[in-house]
Computed example of a mutant assay.
Amino acid sequence: MRVRNLITLMVAAIWLALPSGVAIPQADDVPSSASISVRLAGTRLYFEGEPSFFNYSVRVTGPNGYVGEVFSARRAPSFRLSDHGAVDDGVYRYEVTAATGDVVQHSSPHSRRANGREASAQVPRIGIASDGSFRVVNGQIFASSEAESET
């Protein structure tokens, strides 16, 4: 009887020591055709995604501490470099993320409550992301291969 109680106590201690929050990873079953594309033109980046995508977030970083961010709840945004600071020549990186209409199938009310909100207040969505880089030369955006051929 004592051994049984000791085992029960050990199992309970291990169970309590484990973190209770559960991360919800992105699912691998997002269709491969689903993507966010970018078009570079002049001093802007134009993003395009599926009509069902929403909550777009764009972050661009560049030389001399350049950082710019935009958010769009309903449609793919565009990003004008000069709206976020001085545009120096050099290599810039962008990252764009969005939520898809697909729901995470393996989430539980417990895991949804891990961020402090009511479990019924949200439905976890599958996200999608895209990133890349480009070069700015004389204030104009060039794709990396175009910028190398110009210099």
Rank of each mutant, 00 (worst) to 15 (best):
R80Q: 14
R80C: 07
R80E: 15
R80V: 14
R80N: 11
L81P: 13
L81M: 15
L81D: 14
S82Y: 11
S82C: 04
S82P: 12
S82F: 12
S82G: 05
D83I: 07
D83V: 05
D83R: 04
D83K: 04
H84L: 00
H84C: 03
G85M: 09
G85Q: 10
G85F: 08
V87S: 03
V87I: 06
V87A: 00
D88F: 13
D88I: 11
D88R: 08
D89G: 12
D89K: 01
D89C: 02
G90V: 10
G90H: 05
V91Q: 04
V91M: 13
Y92K: 05
Y92D: 03
Y92F: 13
Y92P: 02
R93H: 10
R93G: 05
R93F: 11
Y94V: 12
E95K: 11
V96S: 03
V96E: 06
V96N: 01
T97H: 06
T97K: 03
A98R: 08
A98E: 13
A99C: 02
T100Y: 03
G101V: 14
G101I: 04
G101W: 13
G101P: 12
D102L: 15
V104F: 10
V104E: 02
V104Y: 03
V104S: 07
Q105T: 15
Q105A: 15
Q105G: 15
Q105I: 10
Q105F: 07
H106M: 08
H106Y: 14
H106V: 06
S107K: 00
S107P: 04
S107M: 01
S107I: 09
S108A: 04
S108D: 10
S108G: 01
S108V: 05
S108H: 02
S108T: 15
P109T: 00
P109K: 00
H110W: 14
H110C: 02
H110Y: 08
S111A: 06
S111G: 00
S111I: 02
S111L: 08
R112W: 02
R112G: 00
R112C: 05
R112T: 07
R113C: 11
R113M: 13
R113A: 14
R113V: 05
R113K: 09
A114G: 02
A114S: 06
A114F: 01
N115A: 07
G116M: 10
G116Y: 03
R117E: 12
R117S: 09
E118V: 10
E118N: 14
E118P: 07
E118F: 14
E118Q: 14
E118W: 06
A119K: 01
A119S: 03
A119D: 10
A119V: 01
S120V: 11
S120P: 07
S120Y: 07
S120R: 08
S120N: 13
A121F: 07
A121I: 11
A121T: 10
Q122Y: 09
Q122R: 12
Q122A: 09
V123A: 08
P124N: 01
P124F: 00
P124K: 00
P124I: 01
R125N: 13
R125I: 09
R125S: 07
G127K: 01
G127H: 04
G127S: 06
A129W: 03
A129K: 07
A129M: 11
A129Y: 06
S130G: 13
S130L: 06
S130M: 09
D131L: 07
D131P: 05
D131Q: 13
G132N: 11
G132P: 07
G132V: 13
S133K: 15
S133D: 15
S133P: 10
F134E: 06
F134V: 14
F134G: 09
